[in-house]
């Protein structure tokens, strides 16, 4: 049993330190028989706002070699509709549901958190911030969710804000941290038969294997220093990747959009993590997790 919210009155205990990342798995039932949800530690929903949101128009994905960017605007039917459509499904699940809220306005986060806290088996709120959210704003949003929702609050930290936000929010009472949200990036669009010779680009959230060493770097610098549990997310594509994250101090891992290519990835990681910890392969550290980062060793 892994406790992801040890300082919260209800806690957030999970059996397996594994869950799909927000935006990678829908609202729980999309993959049907392709994924054994009972083998996961929890599910994390797609991002949800209080009010319905529409998708962005135009190209929403750009694929280039081993990476891709996605820009959808996080369309969703709004909190009430999600509860109506998926509340019964969540209640039947044998694993906890972590609802991911788009954290834009404190009043909306507060109302959405209050709505979801009344749904059976919703056991935590994960907040996704805009990259520009100030520390003060981030704390206000976390507080709004915590006070109105009464559930553990996990903050998903924007990729380039870890140094700034993660230790600050941990001190301000967030229950756990997801490191990190996908970075923003621009990729050239592979022609794939479309308008050859016309250079086009896509901007959005970056996914791909290239994120994994960046994640390990972040974990090696922060996971054991932070006073709250850390959930690792970014480019995890194998059981060994997940084990490496846990070895570097993550309490659990999230598998992001790489599972679209291989939904069985979740089951394979779940099986690997179900083994006793002594059986985890050793990971050789280039940097001790506690070694301070200096000009020389960066």
């Amino acid at each position: 049993m892994i406790e992801l919210a040890p300082n919260h009155k209800y806690g957030l205990a999970i059996d397996v330190p594994l869950m799909p990342a927000s935006g990678a798995f829908g609202y729980g039932d999309a993959y049907g028989d392709l994924v054994d949800i009972s083998g996961l530690g929890a599910i994390v929903t797609n991002p949800i706002s209080l009010q319905p949101r529409q998708a962005t128009q135009g190209r929403r994905i750009a694929v280039h070699e081993d990476s891709f960017v996605v820009h959808t605007g996080w369309p969703n039917p709004g909190a009430r509709r999600v509860i109506r459509d998926y509340g019964a499904t969540w209640e039947r699940l044998t694993v906890p549901v972590i609802v991911h809220l788009l954290a834009n306005h404190t009043s909306e986060v507060a109302r959405a958190a209050a709505l979801f806290s009344a749904v059976p088996n919703v056991r935590a709120i994960e907040l996704g911030f805009t990259a520009a959210a100030s520390r003060k704003r981030a704390v206000e949003l976390v507080t709004a969710a915590a006070v109105e929702g009464d559930l553990p609050v996990i903050a998903q930290i924007p990729f380039d804000r870890v140094d700034d936000l993660a230790p600050y929010l941990a001190r301000q009472g967030v229950d756990a941290l997801t490191l990190t949200a996908p970075p923003r990036a621009v990729l050239p669009v592979d022609e794939n038969g479309e308008d050859p010779g016309v250079a086009r680009f896509g901007r959005g959230r970056l996914y791909g294997r290239a994120l994994f060493p960046l994640l390990l770097n972040t974990l090696s610098r922060w996971a054991v220093k932070l006073p709250v549990p850390v959930i690792a997310c970014g480019g995890i594509a194998s059981p060994d990747d997940a084990l490496a994250c846990l070895t570097l101090g993550a309490a659990a891992v999230q598998v992001d959009a790489l599972l679209w290519r291989d939904p069985s990835l979740l089951d394979r990681i779940a099986r690997a993590l179900a083994k006793p910890r002594a059986a985890y392969p050793a990971v050789t550290h280039l940097l001790s997790p506690n070694e301070p980062e200096t000009e020389e060793n960066v």
């Binding site: 990678a24 798995f25 128009q57 929403r60 994905i61 959808t72 996080w74 369309p75 959009a257 679209w260």
Partner: peptide
């Protein structure tokens, strides 16, 4: 249609 499962919202049609 990168996910094919109704998850990613890339394939939304207005």
């Amino acid at each position: 249609m990168p996910c094919g499962a109704g998850v990613c919202d890339v394939c939304r049609v207005a």
